[in-house]
Nucleic acid binder design. Sequence first.
DNA 1: CCATCAGGTTTCTAATGGAAACCAGGTGTG
DNA 2: CACACCTGGTTTCCATTAGAAACCTGATGG
Lengths: 137, 137
Amino acid sequence: MQESTFLSPAYPHVTTSKRGDVFARNCPTRQLLDRVGDKWSILLLGMLGEGEMRFSALKRRVDGISQKMLAQTLRTLERDGLITRHVEPTVPVSVTYAITPLGRELLSALQWLIDWAETRMGAVAQAQVAYDLRMAD
Amino acid sequence: MQESTFLSPAYPHVTTSKRGDVFARNCPTRQLLDRVGDKWSILLLGMLGEGEMRFSALKRRVDGISQKMLAQTLRTLERDGLITRHVEPTVPVSVTYAITPLGRELLSALQWLIDWAETRMGAVAQAQVAYDLRMAD
DNA sequence: CCATCAGGTTTCTAATGGAAACCAGGTGTG
DNA sequence: CACACCTGGTTTCCATTAGAAACCTGATGG
């Protein structure tokens, strides 16, 4: 578990776009986080990890997502090769989304995060209570 | 790697706040993502994983973060028990942040994500190029 | 002729993020 | 004495983004 590579300067072909600080801004971790570092991407990937699903099913099951963000996030995930989009020309049209092998790899990395959440979010909640008490002195 | 628990209804003590859909909105994964599902939290945790660091050092090394987001994100991480904040009454005052054992646990779960990013972001970039070509037909 | 379906897109508004200015309060400098 | 400078923030203002709700498309059934 090599911590030193956390912000490593790989992928030099990516243009720097801002004053010559190539190092941190373009490391792969930053690229990943800029792309799927939002909750909807992660939740959708998790949902599709359980099996392929249609647009409306995702909308129902991912509680609180707006239709706009659902469409937008799915498009990004598809562009990144993490999911596929299949249009069946029924009437009305039915569109099915499924996770790709690449997406499943990412999901299995995410699984450690999910497992941590399930076992340790209780401790986080406790820490919050303690903090709020300390601050309310 | 139990995928079925991805959105499990644990922590029923959390109030539902919206129309009775307790299931998805309050599962621990959602709670985690609502809290540290942004790139700055993850990047700061990664930085502090390399050793304790002062405010200004973090500002320099986490490229692109604004002073506001740095202060804000650090406060949230501290509240959640993932980092500590130590004020040394020198002059000018010096404030040091360090990761906690709980934070380090989370970071080691995140390490899988980081490793995935470093080995597979190339594939993601390729997928993007392919997608953009398909769409520009 | 109208409503209905899925799967979106558009529009408008509320919340969020970033840039830059400001602040506190103790120190050194002319 | 007046002033500038240090760290570690907070405040202000503006641009971007997310969310809610309305609209769109095109075939189909009543």
